[in-house]
Design a protein around this nucleic acid. Structure first.
Lengths: 346, 346
DNA sequence: CGGCAAAATGTAATCCGTTACATTTTTTAA
DNA sequence: TTAAAAAATGTAACGGATTACATTTTGCCG
C-alpha cells in the first residue's frame, strides 16, 4: 500500500504539503493541490488510519457491552447505536459478555489500552471496577469514558439512559387492575438487577394504590428467556389460588407464559391475562397479540452513543441522566378478569 | 498514561529490555525481569495497542457485515462469531448495513484503510466490488481478506460457509409431500438472493421427484419479516385454490403466516400446515410449535471467523467451501393434508 | 525596484513499541 | 588464566501521518 511519502515523491512536493492538501486544502495553492490530488489518485493512496489514530490517540472505536446480542430487544438497541455511530464516523466493537464480569473487564481493558475511546454498558455493572482506575488523582473526578443504558447503576459515574421502569410497571399493573384483576402475578428478572427491582416497585406501587395486598408467592423469578417464562407460568398455575393475570418483565417470557397457559387448557385472556414488556416485533404476532410496554429501543442506542461521543469529545461537564418515554400498548392478551379461575387440567 | 520509556526509566534499563520482558521473558535475566515488572506495576503501565498495531500493521479487528442485527438468526450467528473472535484475541466491528451497497462499501473501506484486517459478509455481495481492488497484479490472484457466510456468492473470491439450502428445502418439501400435501406453497425471500434461488430449487426438486407439478402462483415473495409472512399468507389464502401447506423460508415469516391463517378462521395444521426455516428460539414456542429446519447458527459464526483468521494469517492457500449440516425438526405445525380446504371466512 | 507582509512549502520532531544490530557481561572450555 | 561462545542488555531505526517551526516564494505598495 502506498504511503504519503510515495505520493509526495510523485507530486514532487513534501509530505507536509500532501497532508495539508488532504486535511486543510485552503492552505495549499490550487496548482499544487491539483498536482497532489493527481498523485494521490495515481498512487491509489489511502491514508493509513492506524497511523492517524496512533498519532492522534483517538481510535474512533466504541466498545458495546451487551449481555447477549441474541436478545431481540438488545438487538434493536444495537441497531440504533450503529446508526448514530456511523453518522458520527465511529465504529462499534461488539462485546457479547453473557453477563460475565471477567469478560466485561476484558473488554473494558480495550479502552485502557487505546483500542477504543469509550464504552457503552447495557447492564448495571461498572466494568472498570476490577481494573485500575484512570488516574482519578486528576483535578476533577473525571467522568469515566462510559455510558450506562437500559439497566443502570444507582450511582453511575457516567451519563445514563433509562426508562422510568417503575412508572411503566405501575402503568401496566394499573391497566390490569382496571380490568378487574386482583390476583396479579409478576414474572420478574434476576433478583439483583436494579431493573427488576424498579419494576417490582412499580408493580407494588400500583397494587398499594388500589388497596390490593401484595402476595409474595405471585412473584416468580425468570431470566428473560422464553423457557423461563414458560416454567414460571407453570409454577404460578400450580398455586392453590392461581393468578388471573400475569405481568412479565419482557415479551419473551410473556410468550413463553402464554404457551404454558394454553398447554394447561386455559385461554388467554378469557381465563388468564398476560402482559409483556418491550414490544418486540414478535409481540404483535403472538397469539393472542401481546399487551405490552413499548420501549424506544433504537432510541436507547442512539442516545447512548451520542452521549458517549459528547463525553469523549469533552462537551459534557456533568453526567446527564436521560429518561426515555414508554407507551402502554393494549392488545388482545389482556382482558377482563374472569369470575373464577377454572382449575388447570394438565 | 505512562509509556514504555517511563517504565524503562523507573527500572533503570533500556526500553528494549522492557519490551522483551513483556514479549519474550526468557531473553531477560530473572533479576532484571523482576525489576521491570515492578516498574510496570508502579507506573500502571499498559502497552498502547494502537502503537503496537500500527507498527505490526495488524489491527486484530474484523468487520462483520450483516443485513440486520435485529434478525434473530443473524444475532445468533454474531454470537458465535464473537465467541470465536474473543478466543483468538480478535475484536468484531459491527456493520449493520441494511443491505445497502453504499454502506457495505463504507465498511469494506475500513479494511483498505487498515482499520480492520478482514471482513465477514453475510450476504451474497462483494463489498469490495465498488472499491479499488487490492493489487491483483500480484503473483497469485490473492484471496480477498474476506469470508462469505450464510448467503454466499456463486463465485465467491474467498472462503465460504453455507448450508446446503437446496437439500434442506427439498427435505422439508418431502416431509410435506409425505404428509399427503400436494398443493404446497412457498413464501420465499427476495428474488435475486442465491439463498432463495437455492431453496426454491430444492422445493422444485422434491415436487418433481414426487410427480407434483409446480404452480407459479404458489410462490409468494416475502422479505423475511413477520409482517411479510403475514401478508404473503393472506395472498395465498385468497387464491381460488389455496394451498394445504405453506413452507416459509424463515421462521419469522412462518409465525406471521400462522397468525394470518388463524385470523381467517382456519386451523394449523388441521386445515393448513406451516413450516419454517432456521429454528429460532421462538419456533418452539409458537402456537402450534413450528416444524422447521434447524441451522447451526452459532457454528456459522464460529466457522466464518476461524476461516477468516486462517486466511489473514496465511494458513490457507485455497478458498475452502464449508458446508454445515441442517436438521429437520418436526413439531406440531405440520400435519396430514386435509381432505379439502375449507373456504376462509374473513 | 526595494522591501515587507502574506501565502506557500519544506524540514524535522513526534506519537510508542518493536527489533535488527551493536555492545557489554557472563559462562564455558581449554 | 584466557579465548571463545553464549547470554544479557543497550542503541537507534522504523512504521505513517501530523504539525510546529523554519524557509522560500509570491504579491503588493510605495
Amino acid at each position: 500500500m502506498s504511503n504519503i511519502r510515495e505520493v509526495a515523491r510523485l507530486a514532487e512536493v513534501s509530505v507536509a504539503t500532501v497532508s495539508r492538501t488532504l486535511q486543510q486544502p485552503d492552505l495549499v495553492s490550487l496548482k499544487t493541490r491539483n498536482k497532489v490530488l493527481a498523485a494521490v489518485k495515481a498512487a491509489g493512496y489511502k491514508p493509513n488510519l492506524m497511523a492517524v489514530r496512533f498519532r492522534s490517540g483517538k481510535t474512533h472505536n466504541l466498545v458495546v457491552l451487551v449481555p447477549t446480542v441474541a436478545n431481540v430487544f438488545f438487538a434493536r438497541v444495537i441497531s440504533g447505536m450503529q446508526e448514530a455511530a456511523h453518522e458520527k464516523q465511529y465504529a462499534l466493537l461488539l462485546g457479547n459478555t453473557l453477563g460475565d464480569d471477567e469478560m466485561e473487564a476484558a473488554y473494558a481493558r480495550m479502552v485502557q489500552t487505546s483500542q477504543a475511546d469509550g464504552l457503552i454498558q447495557l447492564r448495571a455493572h461498572n466494568p472498570f471496577d476490577a481494573l485500575q482506575q484512570p488516574d482519578s488523582a486528576d483535578d476533577n473526578p473525571a467522568l469515566l469514558p462510559m455510558v450506562n443504558a437500559c439497566e443502570v447503576l444507582d450511582k453511575a459515574p457516567c451519563p445514563t439512559v433509562v426508562l422510568d421502569n417503575r412508572a411503566a410497571a405501575s402503568a401496566m399493573t394499573e391497566h390490569l387492575l382496571a380490568l378487574g384483576h386482583r390476583r396479579i402475578a409478576m414474572i420478574k428478572g434476576p433478583a439483583r438487577s436494579p431493573l427488576t427491582r424498579d419494576r417490582v416497585a412499580g408493580y407494588r406501587d400500583a397494587l398499594q394504590a388500589a388497596g390490593v395486598s401484595f402476595a409474595a408467592e405471585l412473584l416468580s423469578p425468570g431470566n428473560f428467556s422464553l423457557q423461563s417464562g414458560f416454567d414460571a407460568a407453570g409454577d404460578l398455575l400450580a398455586l392453590p389460588n392461581p393468578p388471573t393475570a400475569i405481568f412479565c418483565e419482557n415479551d419473551e417470557m410473556a410468550i413463553g407464559a402464554i404457551q404454558r397457559i394454553k398447554q394447561s387448557g386455559l385461554r388467554v385472556p378469557a381465563d388468564i391475562s398476560v402482559a409483556g414488556f418491550d414490544d418486540i416485533s414478535f409481540a404483535a404476532f403472538a397469539d393472542p397479540p401481546l399487551t405490552t410496554i413499548a420501549q424506544p429501543a433504537e432510541e436507547f442506542g442512539r442516545t447512548a452513543v451520542r452521549l458517549l461521543i459528547d463525553t469523549l469529545e469533552g462537551r459534557l461537564s456533568k453526567a446527564p441522566k436521560v429518561i426515555l418515554p414508554f407507551e402502554l400498548i393494549t392488545r388482545a392478551s389482556t382482558g377482563p378478569a374472569p369470575a373464577a379461575v377454572p382449575t388447570p387440567n394438565d
